Amino acid sequence: MSAEFETDLKDLAGKLAQVEAVMDLDGLRAQVADLEKQASQPNLWDDPDAAQKVTSQLSHKQSELRRVTDLRQRLDDLGVLYELAEAEGDVASRTEAESELAQLTKDIDALEVRTLLSGEYDDRNAVVTIRSEAGGVDAADWAEMLMRMYLRWAERHGYPAEVYDISYAEEAGIKSATFKVSAPYVYGTLSVEQGTHRLVRISPFDNQSRRQTSFAHVEVLPEVEEVDHVDIPEKDIRVDVFRSSGPGGQSVNTTDSAVRITHLPTNIVVSCQNEKSQLQNKAAALKVLQAKLLQRKKEEERAELDALKDSGSSWGNQMRSYVLHPYQMVKDLRTEHEVGNPSAVLDGDIDGFLEAGIRWRKQTAAV
């Protein structure tokens, strides 16, 4: 084995060992065993909600355990593969080993980032809201581009996404949209995306093809679970129903099934129109409202009004710039991470920004 490859392999083995220690594999195996025992109980589905929670937790824990054990197996296999390639002078196998080393390094780095997610709600699903800000029709178009970026990211990873509500702008794009992404630790991962995103480009809506700067705000909240106990008395909410509609006012539902809920004490308004029945839309809207109230409660308890949700002007709250003209670049203003391929980023290739953001947040918190 070449000295360089052996050194890289040893460094990677050390990094994986640290990740395994942080994840506490013995404890993880014990949790899996306990959940498997609960899932095998004959009366499990007597309580469907509890059963779903157990099976979901079991699936998540098994996935985590499998992910780290698979990486260890790949690392062990890689050393054997390279030694055989060297001994037999097999150039193709050596090239394969070097390619696997690069991919394994990337996969272990990604898992290492996961271990940095230790916040109170980091392991939950994420509820994402995007709103157009300064920039008129370009901002509305930009908000829709951002929504597509996150949904494409979720699709790339095989994470289910459910759109709760979209408010379309008159000419193009959207005023706002709310959707949920479901996966272990997806809230902790996407929470670093919160803030104002700035786009610079030649406006497709300007007859003189002038450069336009537009803004959209991204809010990321953890999905509320029953254990959070966010009680919402009926007297504190007003429920309005209306007909669901698509772009340009096109009706997508012939009944008044869409639901808008106003929380009277805080004046928080949420809506949902993606489900076919009024009851389903009300349930989904209530979950979004609970997430917003949970966030508000957390902010008050910590006396940090911007703990989860940034507030401020478009210019003062920027966290990332996307430049399409006069040059091509996407740059995170906090981490300095940047790439020169905006098209790939806008198609959902944002893992580099997410990992840099998570590392930056951890370092900032440690100072």
Rank of each mutant, 00 (worst) to 15 (best):
K61G: 06
L78C: 06
K61C: 09
P42C: 09
S93M: 11
A33K: 13
W45D: 06
A33V: 10
T95W: 00
K53S: 13
D49M: 00
Q57H: 14
D70R: 13
K37C: 10
T95Y: 01
G89I: 03
E88G: 03
G79P: 02
S56W: 04
D49K: 02
A39N: 01
E83V: 08
D76H: 11
E36L: 10
K61R: 14
D47L: 00
D76Q: 15
S40G: 03
L71H: 02
D76G: 09
R72G: 06
Q38Y: 04
A87C: 03
L58T: 09
V80A: 15
E86W: 10
L58M: 11
L35F: 03
E88T: 14
L71Y: 04
Q38F: 06
S93G: 02
Q41F: 07
R72D: 12
Y82I: 08
D70W: 04
L78Y: 08
Q52D: 12
A50Y: 11
A33T: 15
E36D: 14
Y82T: 03
L65K: 05
D46R: 07
K53I: 10
V91D: 12
L71W: 01
L44V: 00
E36F: 04
E96S: 07
S93A: 15
L35Y: 02
K61N: 13
S40F: 01
Q41I: 02
D77C: 10
A51D: 01
S56T: 15
Y82E: 12
V80N: 11
T69H: 02
R72F: 05
L58W: 09
D70C: 05
D34W: 04
V54K: 04
R74V: 00
T69K: 08
E88Y: 06
Y82M: 14
L58F: 08
R94K: 11
Q62C: 08
R72V: 14
G89H: 05
D90N: 12
A51C: 07
A33C: 06
R72T: 15
D70K: 11
S40N: 08
L81S: 14
D77Q: 15
L65Y: 12
L35D: 06
Q73M: 12
D34T: 12
A87G: 09
K53H: 09
A39R: 00
D46M: 03
E96K: 11
R67W: 09
S63F: 06
V68S: 02
Q41C: 04
R72H: 12
E64Y: 07
S59Q: 10
A87L: 13
R94Y: 00
D47W: 00
D77P: 09
T95K: 14
A50M: 11
L65H: 10
V68R: 05
K53T: 11
V68D: 04
S59M: 08
A33G: 05
N43R: 04
A50S: 14
E36M: 10
L78H: 07
E88W: 02
D49N: 04
Q52A: 13
N43C: 00
P48E: 06
